[in-house]
Design a protein around this nucleic acid. Structure first.
Lengths: 347, 347
DNA sequence: CTGAAAGCGCTTACAG
DNA sequence: CTGAAAGCGCTTACAG
């Protein structure tokens, strides 16, 4: 803080004057260079402490032409009005932030929904950081490719894509969609809806898993049960209410996120039906709240916090000039009450 | 991105050479200084576009001795293991981020729980930013005072304190505690528990409101019903289970956050009791999820996103050298199902 | 209206 | 082992 008067920050030159050496020596001593005398080092370190001197990191970073900052861009889907406050994003952010902190890196958060990420190229988002983590692909896979091809150090959370130029970390979405659907089929459900926007690559893969499970169980896919439910809560309600009102028969739903599942449960309850007795629900993500909702949520677990760590470590390797392979995190079904496999302890 | 080869970034000097002027003129033209010829300005702007030149914001900020960054420090309570992923924090972060974006400011997020904020003085958190927003006071009111007294530009979300040197924005906690308790009393509840850690200034004020309401209704305060429930979910469950196991009679609870309330509801359900029939619950904050839980949550609304904006605007005024008054946002009771005032549409 | 020059606070090859 | 000097990419008084 430059305005800090009480503990006015001293400059490297000033410390050099006090120590009777040049800035170069101070700089080397404080970065523990082998090329400076141990005695001098010790003396300088002590003086630094005494005068409360600390290297100005901004000047250092500027000189070094690096920022010490990693940008995180959440690819909020504009159409579905997803917010930063979506628990999935926030848990991911937590994992990323913790891991960056361990590496002594700062986190720059890009906020607003982004129409075209290529426009970010000239913004602070890119200029202020050493690399970028994209969470989600939105519908901008080709733009992400373009960025990666222009040598932007970046890593992307999302679905595996053909012709993908960027380093990707993501869940096994096809398997996730499959195990969720399979679980419901094994519980005897036959009219299973799929809630989610299949224009998003991850959701499309889950949808393929859903169809595969149906097929294996000899259940014919009913297109009326594929609902493009948006991630945003209010709009999710509307979509689900519409389905309920349509009288299309369904006894279960595979949702694209836990938030969507919670929204579905609330909407279903209001219509007078019960979860899981009338309609069984499986979520996706296993956000912290999933185990605390009523009923508790059966869901496909993505280890979100760990995913955040993998994203960071992958990016750092990339920045170190290493080649980094994609990572696919396995998907695991967490069985709780909402799918009807476990008896709810009264309700 | 310095590594960006495909669209190699051009420097101001290079653009100056191209334009046949000096850097000074480029600088002035691009910042729309009245001291440069309109024709020259237009020409330079066009060249900038043609050569894809954009002012290096980091050099600019360095030169200007400002960062264009605001730090946000969440005063996570270590004891109660509160996480960044707490929806309250995240919604607050959303409000702050949106408002900062409008002012073209970046957001630096400090992550880890902080034992002593004075130690932050020499970290990047402070060095990398023009000002700091603290969300919560934790138990470090005097340290916050010390920081403010050393001229750190800062603003704090929290409770009004005597001898407070910093600019504060916060809810009306005493009123909030009062209206929550009063609501339950008017519904006929008489054994109302208070869940929360009264060592935190905000919670202490809500607790005073709780006691005031009890007194007005002639209900004697029962210390066994004041439970130091931590914010963290797992630990909240433990505390609530203990109360349930103790057989201390209670028919309602005022909670210190919605997350705590959701935790309480889940715990109560598991014990075989029902909300609100057996135990009525009132939360605090009105997080997004409050209206989607089952039962939906009666809660004391804090307009969190707006609060984020007020924090930012207050800090910016401070940075402009203005004197900024504290802000107390009013508290409003949002009545939903969990308090038993509204009939749940079946359960 | 525009140029020449200093300087923000560091780091690091180059000498010695 | 340490110093003198250049330079990261800008902005802005000071001249003219």
């Amino acid at each position: 803080m430059s305005q800090n008067k009480a503990k006015a920050r001293i400059t490297m030159q000033e410390l050099a004057d006090i120590a009777g050496v040049t800035r170069g020596t101070i700089s080397r001593a404080l970065s523990d260079s082998p090329r400076v005398n141990e005695k001098t080092k010790t003396r300088i370190r002590e003086l630094a402490k005494e005068y409360n001197y600390h290297v100005n990191q901004r000047a250092r970073n500027f000189r070094l032409q690096k920022t010490g900052v990693i940008s995180v861009v959440f690819m909020l889907n504009i159409k579905s009005e997803q917010h930063m406050s979506d628990p999935f994003f926030l848990e991911m952010l937590g994992g990323i932030a913790d891991c960056l902190a361990e590496h002594d890196l700062d986190l720059f958060l890009s906020h607003a929904p982004i129409a075209n990420i290529l426009e970010l190229q000239d913004s602070r988002v890119f200029q202020n950081s050493d690399g970028v983590i994209f969470v989600g692909q939105g519908e901008q896979h080709s733009e992400l490719n373009a960025l990666a091809n222009s040598d932007t150090p970046m890593v992307v959370w999302g679905a595996e894509m053909p012709d993908q130029s960027y380093c990707r970390v993501g869940g096994d979405n096809a398997a996730g969609g499959y195990i969720a659907t399979n679980h419901l089929l094994e519980l005897g459900r036959r009219h299973i809806a799929f809630f989610g926007d299949v224009n998003l690559p991850e959701i499309a893969l889950r949808f393929s898993g859903y169809k595969k499970a149906l097929k294996e169980h000899g259940v014919k896919f009913d297109p009326r049960l594929q609902i493009e439910v948006p991630f945003e809560m209010e709009r999710a309600r509307d979509a689900i209410e519409e389905l309920l009102g349509s009288r299309t028969k369904f006894d279960a739903a595979v949702c694209s996120s836990d938030v969507m599942a919670l929204s579905a449960i609330a909407t279903i309850n209001e219509s007078g039906l019960r979860v899981p007795a009338d309609i069984a629900i499986v979520g996706y993500d296993d956000i912290g709240l999933a185990r605390y909702s009523s009923p508790t949520l059966t869901t496909v677990r993505q280890n979100i916090r760990w995913a955040g760590r993998v994203l960071v470590e992958s990016l750092l390797s990339l920045l170190n000039g290493q080649t980094v392979a994609d990572t696919t995190l396995s998907s695991e079904l967490i069985v709780r009450q909402s799918s009807g496999a476990v008896a709810a302890k009264k309700t």
